[in-house]
Structures are given as structure tokens and as C-alpha cells.
Nucleic acid binder design. Sequence first.
DNA 1: GTCTATAGCGGGATAGAC
DNA 2: GTCTATCCCGCTATAGAC
Lengths: 204, 204
Amino acid sequence: MEKRDAEKDILEAAKKVFITKGSAGARIQEIADMANINKAMLYYYFKTKEQLFNRIIEDAAMLMSQNIIPALIGDKNIIDKLEQLTENYIDTLSEHPYIPIFILSELNQHPQTFQDKVQSRITDSNVLPNLFQQILLEQQQNKIKPIAPQHLILTVMSLLVFPFVAKPIFTQLFKMGETQYVRFMNERKAEVKKIIRLLLKPNP
Amino acid sequence: MEKRDAEKDILEAAKKVFITKGSAGARIQEIADMANINKAMLYYYFKTKEQLFNRIIEDAAMLMSQNIIPALIGDKNIIDKLEQLTENYIDTLSEHPYIPIFILSELNQHPQTFQDKVQSRITDSNVLPNLFQQILLEQQQNKIKPIAPQHLILTVMSLLVFPFVAKPIFTQLFKMGETQYVRFMNERKAEVKKIIRLLLKPNP
DNA sequence: GTCTATAGCGGGATAGAC
DNA sequence: GTCTATCCCGCTATAGAC
């Protein structure tokens, strides 16, 4: 029998409600109900709706960047790094499929949020410039085919993230249930890796 | 000197506000102000906020499907069709970059919307089953490499749509201005077509 | 068709007892 | 820490004069 932790319950409920309804559409009452807690109690733990929301979106952004950065650092070659990223990303997002659309949608409405809460972590780590440099270096060494680093990165991110962003559309369009969706996204790892190799592996 | 058309002004303003703030975040007052019209006048033309919103999202969905369907029907081969789609889509979305994130985000919050307003148009036209059939046929004839139709479609859609969905992220990440973004998205047409050919063109 | 004024209420936030 | 009651603002929507 575990001790009931109000703050944890609130965060869990808030996550669900904010992610499905968005910042403006979410109702504090609904979060409180879902956490089996009084609305006043919620304000006892989190001073304002905005503060609670910030906490949720920070957690979500953290979850995302935690999977990018480790896959991309180290001294493996580019193809290995991107394949590792594919594994990590699809696994994590399969467990949290609504995170990307939530982040992107909120970012669209408040672009400053990104600057403040997400970019700093990526910029500070210097992952991106290092990756660019490695791509250009491996090209000079003829280890991979020529491609603009921006296009390569955007292509891989597109292939990884979009299927989750568009989940509601394409599960309905392809008439998939939840189980089929998960299986499909697992197949998709191989598909994305195939494209990465097609793009980068030099012709023999 | 053109005649002032209130209804048109409202729709134009509503489009901007709904797309940037979302359905729940949008304020009727802001739409009215932007349309240089009285708030009561707005209710004269559109009975409720919801009705106005529905009109906006229907227009947006229409704009999207208008570009998919024509590129995919007819008797061209798959590669030509997908390359045509690439041209149409990136051109249209470059003019309306915030439409995809708007639609996807609202769809996520109200999945029923899709069933009602978008899917019917696509389902009725029978584009998707026909396309699937053509893909399988060309594979049997060894005109294209083997690939599951679902993965092919999802890959192409990812490559086309995601750069717009993630526009705020990657313009900031790659430190791009509006002009550079447009130029980059134009380059991207060639990049996407290259990937389509890599995926489908049989090795000689 | 256009405008002013206002109804009416949903929902964020707080007071204050226990 | 927990709860009830309530404040009060902002917002959708309407009434009604012109």
C-alpha cells in the first residue's frame, strides 16, 4: 500500500489534461477531479495554472531532449548515431505519443517558450554544431554521400516525429487500432534506418 | 477602391487568430478588432464562436485536400505522382505554413472532427485505396522496389509536412530568417524527390 | 446593418475555518 | 494540509436603440 502523494497525482493528471486540451483549453477543475483532490489543494501545491503548465511542458521537453543528446554524442560514426537515435526516439515516443504534438503546438502559440526552456539545453550541450562538423568531415573522407547537414537532420527528425504528430489522422486513415499502431511503429524503426542508409551509404 | 466586405474581413481575421491561438485560446474580441468591426457585428454574421471556428478549420482542411487529391489521381506512375505531390504541397504550405500544425493540433484535441470534416472527402474520392493498389501493382511489375504502401505514404507525408509543423523549432535552431526559410523549403523539394527516387527506383 | 450596453456564467484564484 | 464557500474578472452572447 503506497502512500498517496498529492503533488505526484496532480502532475500526472495535469499532464493528461494539458496534453489533450492544451494550455488554454485545460480546466483546473478537471485536473483536480482527475487527481482526486480538492481544487483549493491544487492551488496549495501550485500557485497558478501557468506555473503548473510550465512544469508540465518543461518535463515534456526534458523527456525529448534526454533522448536526442545521448544518442548523438560520443565517437561513433554518423550512421550509427542516427540509427541509435531512431531506436531511442521511437521507443520513447511509443510510450508518450502525444508529447510531440503538445510541444509543437504550444511552441507555435508561444514561440518564446522554446527560446527559454528548450533551446538553451540543446545549445549549451553543443550537440548540433558538433554533429554538423562530423557530417561534413565524414563527407570529406568519402565515408558518406554528400548532403547538406540541415537537410539530413530535418529528414531524420521528420521521419521520427511526424508519425506521432499525425497519429490521429493516420490511425483513422489506415484503420488501425492501438495494437496495430504500436506494431507498425516498431516496423518503422527498420524503415527509417533503411532510409538513413540509402541516403548516406556510398554506392559500392 | 474596393467595397468593404465585413464577412470576408472577419474570416480573414478569424483565420489568423484561430491559427495562432487555437480554438480555446482565441478571443472573439481580438478577431473583431483585427477585422475592424464591432463584436456584435461578428455575431450578426456568425451565430457562435464555434460556428466561426468550424468554418475556419473546414477551409483549412479543404485547402490541404485540394492539393493531395489532384496530384494522386490520373494514370501517371507512382514516382511521377509523388514528385508532383511534392511540388504542390511545398508550394501551398510555403504560403500557409501554420495550417498543418493548426489542423493536427485541433484534431488531436477533437479526434471526431477528422472523421466528420476531413476523412469523408478523402474516403469518398477513393484516392487512398487506388494509390495502394497502384503501388502494389508497380511492385509486381518490378517497376519500383518493394515497400509497404503504408510506410511509403507515411514517409512522403512526413517529409512534406513536418518541416512546416516544426517551423518555429528549426528556424530558431538553425538560426534562419523568413527569407532563408523560404529558400530552404524550395531546396527541399529536390531533397524530397531525391529520397522518393532512392526509395523506389530499382537499382540498374 | 451598425452600435452600446449589459446579461449571464464559467473558471481562476483566495479567504478562512478546521 | 484539507475543505467549503465565495470573490470577481473575462468572456460569450444577446437585447434593443438607431
